[in-house]
């Protein structure tokens, strides 16, 4: 783990909101950083960034899972785009990515490295976080234009995506 990542992890571990999220039994233990799920959301102008591959700003949230509160713990800046910095996300490690469009190759790499992907979502970040808490990210509300039905499922996102009413084949 490089210095930058150590700093991010320290920031996560020492964030008071994050501390509040954690079960008391973990406080002060070596599991402090790894206990909570880390959720990454690429953002631009308070909305989900349209494309994950080239996203330059990634907000890192701590959460206890889908349907739970999210607490902003850090913001990562990737001037070269997220695609060039996937290793950083694996190192943290990020458990889930909630993003807009994403290319197949990048999504496959994330999924292969154990990251759940909620892709092809759009909307203001605060609304999306609300959707996360209410477990409604799979609904129509956050689908990007052109996605005709809810399809954003972790680990098999977009497999059931429809284009112009035609059911997509798995690929």
């Amino acid at each position: 783990m490089n210095l930058e990542m150590r700093q991010v992890c320290r920031k996560i571990a020492t964030n008071p909101s994050y501390q509040a999220l954690r079960s008391p039994k973990y406080v002060g233990t070596k599991d402090a950083v790894s206990f909570c799920m880390k959720l990454a959301i690429p953002t631009t102008r308070q909305r989900i960034a349209p494309l994950f591959d080239s996203a330059t700003n990634i907000e890192l949230y701590a959460t206890e899972g889908y349907g739970c509160d999210c607490v902003l713990v850090s913001t990562l800046e990737f001037p070269e785009g997220a695609q060039q910095n996937l290793e950083t996300l694996y190192h943290i490690p990020v458990d889930t990515v909630v993003c807009g469009a994403i290319s197949n190759e990048v999504e496959r790499l994330l999924v292969y490295n154990g990251v759940e992907v909620f892709s092809f979502l759009c909307g203001p970040v605060q609304e999306v976080l609300k959707g996360w808490k209410e477990r409604s990210l799979h609904g129509y509300t956050f689908s990007m234009p052109g996605c005709l039905r809810p399809h954003h499922c972790p680990k098999r996102s977009r497999d059931n995506c429809c284009i112009r009413g035609e059911r997509r084949k798995n690929h």
């Binding site: 631009t44 909305r47 960034a49 349209p50 494309l51 591959d53 080239s54 996203a55 330059t56 785009g81 807009g100 469009a101 759009c122 990007m144 234009p145 052109g146 112009r164």
Partner: peptide, 20 residues
């Protein structure tokens, strides 16, 4: 489709690496 695109933010329709 056109009907789906009109009225929406261009970057969420275009989804390009240049948008941001």
């Amino acid at each position: 489709l056109r009907d789906q695109a009109i009225g929406l933010s261009c970057c969420e329709v275009f989804k390009s690496n240049m948008c941001e």
